[in-house]
Structure formats: C-alpha cells, structure tokens
Amino acid sequence: MSVNLPAYNRILAELAPHKARLVAVSKVKPAADIQSLYDAGQRIFGENYVQELQEKHPILPSDIEWHFIGHLQSNKVKYIAPFVSMIHAVDSLRLLEEINKQAAKHNRIIRCLLQVHIAEEETKFGLDETELKELLTQWKEQPDKFRNVRIAGFMGMATNTDNMEQVRAEFRHLKNLQAQLKASFAPGDEQLTELSIGMSGDYTIALEEGSTMVRIGSMLFGARY
C-alpha cells in the first residue's frame, strides 16, 4: 500500500488557511489505496478514465464525492451521470449540453467547471476567452436549457515548465478572468465561484493565486507506472 499519510496531513494543513479543498487524484490506483485515504478522512477523489471510475464507484464507500477531471467525450457522459459529483474539464458547449441531458435522465444536477486554455502548449484542452464568453452567454440567455447543470467555476492547467513565475502569471490571469466573468454572468450567485488550479508541482502557487481546489495525486499515492 503506497498512501503517504504524512504528506496528506501536510497538504491539508497548507490548504486550510486558503479554505481550499483537496481532490485526491486516484487514477490507476487500486481501490485499496483509495480506501486507505478515505479512512484517513479524505472524501473527494478525482478520476481521469470513465471505465476505471465505473469500476471503482460500486466497490467503494457511497459517500465518496467523485470528480471527473480528465478529458471527457460526450458519448461517455451517460456512464458517469448517475453518480459523478463534479466534472472539471468541460471544454465545449456540446459537452455541457450532453451533461445536462444525461443529468436530467437521473433527476440530478451535476456541477461543472469550464476548462480554460491558459498554457502555452497547444496540446492542452480548454476554451479560449472568446469561446468561454460565447458559452456563458448561451448559458445565461437560455437557463431552461441548462436546468440540470451548475457551472460552479473554472479549471485550468498551467504550462509544463520550471519557470514558476510563468505558472504564477497563468494562474493569476485565470483568477482575474474568473472575477470579470463572475461579475458579468453570475453576480450575487454561487455559480462561477470555484477555481480548480494547482497540481503536485505547483499547488502552493495556485493557493496563493486564489485556488479553491487543488488536484494532487503522486504526492499522496506515489508515482504512477
């Protein structure tokens, strides 16, 4: 078993002053490891693969809050819609519409984060600012079309670089963008308040720049092979 409980407790202590939450990234890790971290008090777990999440969900405690954090294809939403708590990487209007459709079938409301492309790498997914504003405009103008989703906020992945000042600037840019969009599209509302930024290598910077959720895996579960 490879759960690092000292690291878990240290991370929680670092998150506490920022009132941020930990998403324990458990992809490719066995159910026994997830259970160990659950027994230590963790309740939010993040998975990247639909089939793996389908397999883990029924054999682990029912009060786990499953977050889907990987790239999600529209045709696979139906498999996780009955139980997923939050979907982090909504990168198109079509995907948001499909999540709403599948959530409605189960009489559920699924919280979503819009993935914003803030990194230099073209390979990373996400909406650019124009696409983001277009999506939010449709969401705002057609509320009946999105009754079964809540746009909780935004998710971003920084450039994979050793230049931490660049990472900080990308996180800060997304935080500023969130503030602008919140004021325009959801003032006085609980929507658009979450900011899922920060992973094992940069979460301390993300916290300083306003993260409300950090996604950490290897520090908790060890390296993936």
Rank of each mutant, 00 (worst) to 15 (best):
N160L: 15
S196I: 04
H117C: 09
H106R: 00
L22D: 03
P58C: 04
L132H: 02
V25D: 00
Q54G: 02
P30K: 04
K145G: 09
Y8W: 11
A158G: 11
L96A: 07
M164D: 09
L12T: 09
Y79I: 02
I11V: 14
E98H: 03
S62I: 05
I80L: 15
L113T: 08
S211D: 05
Q166W: 10
S62R: 05
Y38D: 04
S74C: 11
A32H: 13
P187S: 05
Q73C: 06
S92F: 06
D202W: 03
Q42P: 02
M155T: 08
M199D: 09
A31D: 11
S62T: 06
L192P: 00
L53V: 07
L37I: 04
G41V: 15
P30W: 04
Y8H: 05
E129L: 13
Y8L: 14
E47D: 03
V149A: 08
S36G: 12
H71G: 06
L207I: 14
K182C: 06
K182A: 11
E55R: 11
I64W: 10
F83Y: 15
L114M: 02
A183Y: 07
K56R: 03
L93S: 07
I99N: 04
A103T: 04
R108S: 02
Y49D: 01
Y225S: 08
I197R: 01
R10V: 15
E134Y: 15
V50D: 01
A32Y: 13
D63P: 00
Q180C: 04
T123H: 11
V90D: 04
N148M: 03
H106T: 01
I87F: 12
M213W: 13
A179L: 13
N163I: 06
G41C: 14
N4P: 03
F221M: 09
K105C: 04
F154R: 09
